[in-house]
Simulated assay, not measured.
Amino acid sequence: MRSPLPVSTLLLCLYALPCIAGPAHPDPGRMRALEQAIASDELKQIRSVLLQVDGQVVYEGYFNGADAQTLHDVRSASKSVTALLVGAAIGDGRLPGVRAKVYDYFPAFVAQHDVDPRLRGTTVEDLLAMSTLWECDDENPFSAGHEERMYVGERWLDFALALPVKGFAPWMARPEDSPHGRAFAYCTANSFVLGAVLERVTGQPLADYAAHALERPLGITHSQWNRSPEGIGMGGGGTRYRSRDLARLGQLVLDGGRWQGRQLVPRDYVAAMLSPQATAGDGSDYGYQWWGLKLTVGGQPQTVWAMSGNGGNYVFLLPQQRAVAVVTSQAYNRSIAHPQSRRILTEFLLPALR
Rank of each mutant, 00 (worst) to 15 (best):
K294D: 13
N313F: 05
V98F: 10
A169D: 10
P339L: 01
V110G: 03
L295Y: 04
R47H: 15
H212L: 15
P170R: 06
V270H: 07
L17Q: 14
N310L: 13
L349Q: 01
H180G: 12
L71Y: 04
Q36Y: 10
R244A: 14
H338R: 13
R322S: 13
K294V: 13
D285Q: 11
P107W: 03
Q263T: 11
P28I: 09
G311Y: 00
A21Q: 13
R343I: 02
G121E: 14
R155Y: 12
A352W: 06
M1G: 12
A331T: 03
F348H: 09
Q52V: 12
P107R: 02
A108P: 05
V297P: 05
A280C: 13
G261T: 02
G238N: 02
N64Q: 12
E135Q: 13
E154R: 13
L293E: 08
A183M: 00
D177W: 09
M31Q: 13
V58C: 09
A352E: 12
V326S: 10
L214Y: 02
G231I: 04
Q45Y: 10
M150F: 03
V49M: 11
F142I: 11
A196W: 00
R99L: 08
D285S: 14
S76T: 04
F63W: 00
K294I: 11
Q302M: 14
W156L: 01
D177C: 08
V49A: 14
Q45L: 13
L95A: 08
D67E: 11
A247Q: 05
G312Y: 03
I38A: 04
V57W: 04
P4N: 09
L293P: 09
E230Q: 08
M273V: 08
A173H: 15
N333D: 15
D114G: 09
A306S: 10
H180T: 09
Q263Y: 04
R200T: 10
L353T: 01
W156M: 05
T346L: 01
P205T: 12
E154V: 02
A213K: 09
A24F: 14
W156D: 01
E135P: 09
A160Y: 01
A213R: 01
R343C: 11
H180V: 15
N64R: 09
F316L: 00
E215S: 15
L119Q: 07
G309S: 04
R342V: 09
P170K: 10
P23L: 15
W259H: 07
P351C: 02
I336V: 13
L295C: 00
A160M: 06
L293Y: 04
D137Q: 04
A247I: 06
A160I: 06
I344N: 09
S284C: 13
G195Y: 05
P266M: 07
Q289C: 08
D126Q: 10
V193F: 00
K101C: 11
R258A: 10
A66S: 15
A21E: 15
L161M: 00
D255Y: 06
F109D: 02
E60I: 02
T82D: 01
I38S: 03
G298K: 08
N64H: 14
D268E: 13
Q263A: 02
D67P: 14
